[in-house]
């Protein structure tokens, strides 16, 4: 019981900065949606059914009447394809969730995933921790995006206050949590950053995340020390 309470508190502490980052984002989303003629009820439907910030913001940008259903769906798929990478990494770490994994998947966001992976470096991810983080984000996202449809007009230039920088700041800090050594992690970060920036500059859409991630993991595999099963062939190598 105490563990559960401790995990609940750890979840709340962990999620707090990401909520502070997500709320202004959701307010802007709501405001943009109103400008496109979407109703508060439609905003709530989108936020609760899709629940994926970047794709929702892009969708609102693409929205017209009648709604371009196929284009919106394809865009959401491409923008959110990065979840497949996150899910693949998280899967084994939440295997003990059982059937709740499919609920956990529905609530999977960049933030919940990043915080859980960070948690997994120190200790197993408990259901309490994951769902505290994920549900807090979910509830705040609903409230803030709907409030945005009502009050968003008053928050037209949030970038003046640097609020848009909250998201990258969190991700940079979290990325450093995965640092192992210059040799192990250095190539991953450099390859991922360089390829993501290059693809972002050249290819429209969200492909840069996929391209950067693939470059990063390729760098990891190429620079990884040889493993035990390959020891027969590597026996003559000087590398320890």
């Amino acid at each position: 019981m105490t563990t559960r309470l401790a995990d609940f508190r750890a979840g709340l502490v962990a999620v707090f900065p990401t909520v502070a980052a997500a709320v202004p984002f959701a307010l802007i989303l709501g405001q943009q949606a109103t400008a496109k003629g979407l109703t508060p009820a439609e905003m709530l439907a989108m936020s609760s059914i899709v629940f994926a910030g970047s794709s929702q913001l892009i969708a609102v940008g693409l929205w017209s009447t009648p709604a371009p259903v196929a284009a919106l769906a394809l865009m959401a798929f491409l923008v959110n394809l990065r979840h497949a990478l996150m899910g693949a990494s998280l899967s084994g770490k939440i295997a003990h969730f059982g059937r709740l994994r499919w609920v956990a998947a529905f609530l999977l966001t960049d933030e919940a995933w990043a915080l859980s992976e960070r948690r997994a470096l120190d200790r197993p991810i408990s259901r309490t921790f994951y769902f505290t983080v994920a549900l807090t984000l979910f509830v705040c996202w609903q409230i803030a995006s709907v409030l945005g449809t009502v009050f968003g007009a008053y928050l037209e230039h949030p970038e003046t206050y640097g609020l848009d920088f909250t998201f990258p700041a969190i991700f940079i800090a979290l990325a450093l949590g995965f640092w192992k050594s210059v040799r192990r992690t250095g190539p991953v970060l450099v390859a991922s950053a360089v390829v993501a920036v290059a693809v972002h500059a050249v290819v429209p859409g969200a492909w840069y995340v996929i391209a950067g991630a693939i470059a990063g993991i390729t760098a990891a595999v190429v620079t990884a020390p040889r493993e035990a099963p390959a020891a027969d062939q590597a026996a003559g190598d000087a590398t320890p």
């Binding site: 990494s89 990043a114 995965f178 640092w179 970060l189 950053a193 993501a196 920036v197 950067g212």
Partner: peptide
């Protein structure tokens, strides 16, 4: 194992 930092950096770098 390299996926989490690779994705984080790919999202943030641009």
């Amino acid at each position: 194992d390299a996926l989490p930092p690779a994705v984080l950096v790919a999202v943030v770098a641009p």
